[in-house]
């Protein structure tokens, strides 16, 4: 579409009195992002979802629902199925109740969102930290250090990720418990975060390492060395700022992947245990009743899809804002 001109591409006519001031890259990227309507809508949705997750206990108590309390009156005595259409949707239970226990689905959804976001966000932060640090060291130090980190990355990438996670979950959660992490869901959540991070960082580290290799040869780095700058300054003030773009894009695109992975792992039974729930756990439960109560599958499924899609859209928008040439073919 070479003929269509996006409104954002039109030259901005500055006010006559307005003084031309320098904008930092952050300001430029933010102003580009702000012009992207999809990104802004998605960003608002994400912020809302995070707020909902953080304040889930208040919201549920305000709505008068609770994820843990059984409601025997909303399910039938014979089979345990929810009474009423659409999985028992009523004023008491806005999204219906769980088969067999009568627990409120909306409340479970909110608490599940909390756990999913907790795991995915923490794992993303940890992955980004590990990947960036090791990638920079590997790229700048070169030689033996680079070789050791590089082979470690190869080793991790070559591991059958899913198999290892499934196989080690029992042993390692137990080990975490021995280390003082409360038994049960806390240690299971921690296990997921650790495992996701350990298997996730090599991808980012490779990207960062490649970037460092090219950035460290740039003249301003040489100029800084010639000025007498020390190694930490070279690494973190000269080189690191040039890596924010790939790191940010990678992080925003990793988060939804982790939400999906966490759901998949919970579905397979590695995630949190009842009475707590996460998306994967709810989906896992719902499968058996799908033919009778499809809403039980669709409701968490839809929220999961919305979550992952908005994250991905924001990630794409961030990438476009950081590299405006990428999208315009």
């Amino acid at each position: 579409m070479s003929t269509s001109v996006a409104p954002s591409a039109l030259p901005v006519v500055p006010d006559e009195d307005e003084e031309i001031t320098g904008r930092s890259l952050r300001q430029i990227v933010w102003s580009r992002l702000r012009r992207d309507k999809t990104a802004m809508v998605c960003l608002v949705i994400l912020i809302l979802l995070y707020l909902i997750a953080i304040f889930a206990p208040f919201i549920t108590s305000m709505l008068g629902v609770d994820p843990y309390s059984f409601d025997g009156e909303s399910i039938s005595d014979s089979g345990g199925g929810p009474i009423g259409a659409w999985g028992g949707i009523s004023s008491e239970h806005p999204l219906g109740v769980e088969w067999g226990t009568g627990r409120d689905i909306l409340a479970q959804l909110l608490y599940g969102l909390r756990i999913s976001l907790l795991i995915a966000t923490t794992a993303t932060i940890l992955t980004t930290f590990l990947g960036t640090t090791l990638g920079i060291i590997s790229g700048y130090a070169g030689g033996k250090t680079d070789a050791i980190i590089g082979r470690t990355m190869d080793l991790i990438l070559a591991f059958p990720f899913l198999l290892i996670i499934l196989a080690l979950s029992g042993v390692l959660t137990q080990r975490l418990t021995q280390l003082g992490v409360p038994d049960g869901n806390p240690s299971r959540i921690l296990y997921l975060i650790i495992v996701l991070s350990i298997f996730g960082w090599p991808y980012l580290a490779r990207i960062v390492r490649g970037q460092v290799l090219s950035v460290r040869e740039r003249e301003f780095v040489e100029a800084a060395v010639a000025m007498g700058a020390g190694r930490p300054r070279i690494l973190f003030k000269e080189i690191l700022p040039n890596l924010w773009a790939p790191i940010l894009v990678y992080a925003t695109l990793t988060l939804p992947t982790y939400i999906g992975t966490e759901a998949a792992l919970s579905f397979l039974g590695i995630g949190v245990l009842p009475p707590d729930t996460s998306f994967g756990g709810m989906l896992g439960n719902s499968v058996s009743y799908f033919s009778v109560v499809p809403s039980y599958l669709f409701i968490p499924g839809t929220v999961l899809v919305i979550l992952v899609v908005t994250f991905n859209l924001v990630g794409d928008a961030v990438r476009d804002a950081l590299d405006p040439r990428a999208g315009r073919v």
Partner: peptide
């Protein structure tokens, strides 16, 4: 490192890329 920048300094060929853009 202590000598560079204080006792001796260097000007590079390409001023367009010798300053940190950020």
């Amino acid at each position: 490192r202590k000598m560079r920048g204080s006792t001796m300094a260097m000007i590079f060929q390409d001023p367009m890329s010798s300053l940190h853009p950020f």
